[in-house]
Structures are given as C-alpha cells and as structure tokens.
C-alpha cells in the first residue's frame, strides 16, 4: 500500500507536536530524561498516528494494540503522544513528575490512561511484552504488541531471555524497536559495553530484523509494514537515531540522558520546532 504524501506530512507534523509537548513538559520541571525521549519521537508519531489500533476514549479496549515502552524513562514522550491523541487533557502534561501526578518519570500502567505496562527497570518490558503477546494468542486475538527497547538496555540479559522465548513461540504479532541512539547514561554505548551487530544478534535469536532511519517517519512506517508481512517469527526494527534528536540543546550532546533545561534553552528549541511545524503544515 502506498503511503500518501499527505499522510507523511501529517506524521511529520505529529512528531514535531510530540517533540514540542515533551520539551514543554520537561522544561516546566527544569530537568528530565530528555535525550532518550527525543530519539523515540518519530517512532511514537508513526505508532500512535497511523499504525496502532487504539481507542483513546477506551484505553482498556481488549482488542487494541499494546505498546510496552521498556525504556520506561522515555515516558514523557509517550505521555505527550497520548495527550495529543486525547487520552487525557493536554494541560495535564505540565504535572509531569510533580507531587501526586499521573505522569511519573517512568511509565506506570496504573496511573496514566493509555500506558499499557509499568516499566523502568531495564530489560523487564521485554518479558512483559512476550507474556502479553502470548496472552493475546491464547485468546485468539489479532492485535499487535509493540515493544520499545533502548540500545543500552540490550546489555540486560533479560532482553535476550525474552528474545529467545519470543522466537521459540513464533510470536509474529510482536514487533520490537531498538532505539539505536548510540548513547547511554555513562557515555557512548560502544565505549561502555558495545552490543555490536544488533540486527545480526536478533536474527541469530530467530527474529526477522530490519533497519530504519529513526528520524524518518516514512521509513519507519515502511519497515513496520514489512514486519507485519513476515509470518512465524517476531520482528525487530533497529532505528538509527540520535539521542536528543530534534532538540537544539540536546541533540548530539554527550550528557543528555538526564539533563537540566533552562527556560532560555527550551524557548530556543521550541522556536525552531514551531518554525518546522509551519514549514511542514504550510500554515
């Protein structure tokens, strides 16, 4: 199926809006896990803007597609996408990490409408996703389970335990994404503990592996469509991303896993993004 130019334009605009809201909510607090939130924005735009079967008015709809963001610290970006889709009011984003909030640093299924799983201790989302996919298969549902992993997260052995089991059960309605932004808290992934050939590793575990440009919504969408055609195996899409991408003061910086954000930095980044949004939407 051809993806229309109009749809791509919409997804690009949606990505910019997610980025704007994520920067706003973290800037409101003055600090946050900005780098790894920015690098999954285009993926979230594609998932929530086009791919996922969801009903924001009925977050617990049993036939929905599930998203498990195992790199739970990307929560603020997911919250922005959810609010923009209407799961909860946009104004609620400014409560991020404030006392009594429904939007904690890491994803919590019991607090946030639309968050399908509680995550934050890295690696655990992978096993949870396998369990969810197995549950759907037992119920003979045709919904998909999407899993977002960080590249640093691949250092957790539990990811590979889950990968082995998912392939063993041929979970072809499980699609994982690796946010390959090449950085982790302590530095570059290649310097800390290099995961090496990520696609090759997943392939050797029995998965279909694809690569996509994680900054290009069209490419991401295209690869997801390919992954859905592959039968009998789970699929992984390794997204080539930049930690902090699309955010002037975070992109390409070394210490951007968790960072302080000044009012001026936020305003500068937002000005650039509003201009981009105008260019994309032509308004």
């Amino acid at each position: 199926m051809d993806i229309s130019a109009q749809k791509i334009k919409e997804l690009k605009a949606f990505a910019i809006k997610i980025r704007i809201e994520t920067i706003k909510e973290t800037a409101d607090l003055g600090f946050g896990h900005l780098g790894g939130a920015m690098s999954v924005v285009e993926l979230l735009a594609v998932l929530y803007g086009e791919v996922m079967k969801i009903d924001p008015k009925n977050p617990d709809w049993p036939d929905r597609d599930w998203l498990i963001c195992s790199k739970g610290h990307a929560g603020p970006a997911v919250y922005a996408a959810l609010a923009l889709k209407g799961y909860f009011p946009l104004e609620e984003l400014s409560t991020l990490n404030k006392p009594g909030t429904n939007l904690p640093s890491h994803c919590d299924r019991n607090k946030t409408p639309g968050i399908d799983m509680t995550t934050g201790s890295l690696g655990q989302g992978a096993s949870l996703a396998v369990g969810v996919a197995l549950g759907h298969r037992l119920d003979k549902r045709d919904n998909y389970t999407y899993l977002i992993l960080g590249d640093g997260e691949l250092q957790e052995g539990q990811v590979w335990e889950a990968a082995m089991l998912a392939a063993h059960h041929g979970l072809d309605r499980l699609i994982a994404f690796v946010d390959y932004n090449k950085q982790q808290l302590d530095g570059y992934v290649r310097d800390i503990n290099d995961p090496g050939d990520i696609s090759g590793k997943f392939e050797s575990f029995g998965w279909n592996a694809y690569k996509a440009d994680g900054r290009d919504v069209a490419d991401i969408l295209d690869r997801i469509k390919s992954a859905k055609l592959a039968k009998g195996k789970p699929s992984v899409i390794v997204l080539d991303t930049i930690k902090g991408q699309g955010c002037t003061f975070a992109e390409g910086k070394l210490d951007n896993h968790h960072m302080t954000i000044s009012r001026e930095q936020a305003e500068e980044a937002l000005a650039v993004l509003y201009k981009e949004l105008e260019e994309v939407t032509g308004q």
């Binding site: 299924r109 399908d116 799983m117 690696g123 655990q124 992978a126 096993s127 949870l128 996703a129 396998v130 369990g131 969810v132 996919a133 197995l134 549950g135 759907h136 037992l138 119920d139 052995g157 539990q158 335990e161 889950a162 082995m164 089991l165």
Partner: peptide, 17 residues
C-alpha cells in the same frame, strides 16, 4: 530463565490470565 518467567507471567496476567 527465572527472571523472564516472572515477567512473562506478569504479562500474561495483564491480558487476564
């Protein structure tokens, strides 16, 4: 895979098992 087993069990329970 004990750690994976607990996670898979939790995931199954999220779907009502």
């Amino acid at each position: 895979q004990e750690a994976n087993m607990i996670g898979v069990a939790a995931g199954l329970s999220a779907t009502g098992k």
